[in-house]
Design a protein around this nucleic acid. Structure first.
Lengths: 158, 158
DNA sequence: TTGACATCGTTGCCTTTGCAACGAATTGTG
DNA sequence: CACAATTCGTTGCAAAGGCAACGATGTCAA
């Protein structure tokens, strides 16, 4: 009854898909923007000093907080522990970081900057601060809201 | 004249390093937040459907824009071209995407969703939309400023 | 004290990534 | 028309990443 004779075979009925624009999807936008922000500085770090992002995080954290274990880095610099461990190993190999067993708890490693490491940071930190300032100027009025938004994202359970 | 006899040997003078707090460094914060935003959804995609982030981007773009070349994906979904090529290959292998040579310009590949691909997206897109709404609600007042800030970051030369 | 359990850092294994080089196809130029 | 230059997609290769398992150490409670 429902078939019309001689009608061309219908394509299978495709349920319409929701409209979805990747360019407005926040995880995507955040990811692209984050990659872009990192890229500028990271390029210089890598080209001039052979330092990648994980190494950079380790170095900053040691500068800021002194001796730290791998576990500290994992927690406070958002580095998965094997990533932190390997970054520390690379930095030890290049002489920027010293790795000594912790006397109190011998499971722990004490990571600290060598004087070469401090000298390196004396070069890197001004670049980072300048970049930070450039971003602050760029974002200007929006900076406060941006930071509030970032805080919300980080507080949210997941 | 400047040496005091019997004074203990001075440690080498360490130039003081600038104070720098990683937790307030925007590239770092953006990176952590972006990773976190992606993680929630991406975990489900991967666990339930074996879909990673590059595959997700390809699928969304094909849903939204129909037939596309690898080059289109590179430009419009921020996927480095080998990443786009391999994601498309994986999706072809799992049957979600069809890859046919483009008749007009035989250097190009025409990628398109198969009906399995469309069925997959019929499941994925509602999840993404729900997530988007959750984020919108979470950010509420800050959303406008956040998007403005993201726009600024993307416009800036680098 | 002793034995189960937890924590720390490293490593093995496999996948993914980034980059450069390549062949195929097309476009531009003389 | 010839032929250099460009574009497209893929792939080889080495480095980076993620995850689970491991040995070593430490903690806790019976």
């Amino acid at each position: 009854m429902e078939d019309q004779p001689h009608s061309p075979p219908d394509p299978p009925v495709e349920p319409p898909l929701p409209i979805f624009d990747l360019d407005r999807f926040l995880p995507y936008r955040m990811s692209v923007a984050a990659e872009r922000l990192s890229a500028g500085l990271a390029r210089r770090y890598r080209a001039q000093f052979g330092i990648g992002v994980p190494e950079w995080r380790v170095l900053v954290h040691l500068t800021h907080s002194g001796e730290q274990s791998v576990r500290d880095l994992e927690r406070r610099a958002s580095l998965e522990k094997s990533k932190a461990s390997r970054a520390a190993a690379r930095l030890e190999a290049t002489g920027y970081v010293a790795k000594t067993p912790n006397a109190g708890d011998r499971r722990l490693v004490s990571l600290s900057l060598t004087s070469e490491g401090r000298a390196l940071m004396a070069e890197l930190l001004p670049l980072a601060l300048a970049y930070q300032q450039r971003l602050d100027a760029l974002l200007a009025d929006h900076l406060g809201a941006l930071e509030a938004a970032l805080d919300l994202m980080m507080d949210e359970p997941a």
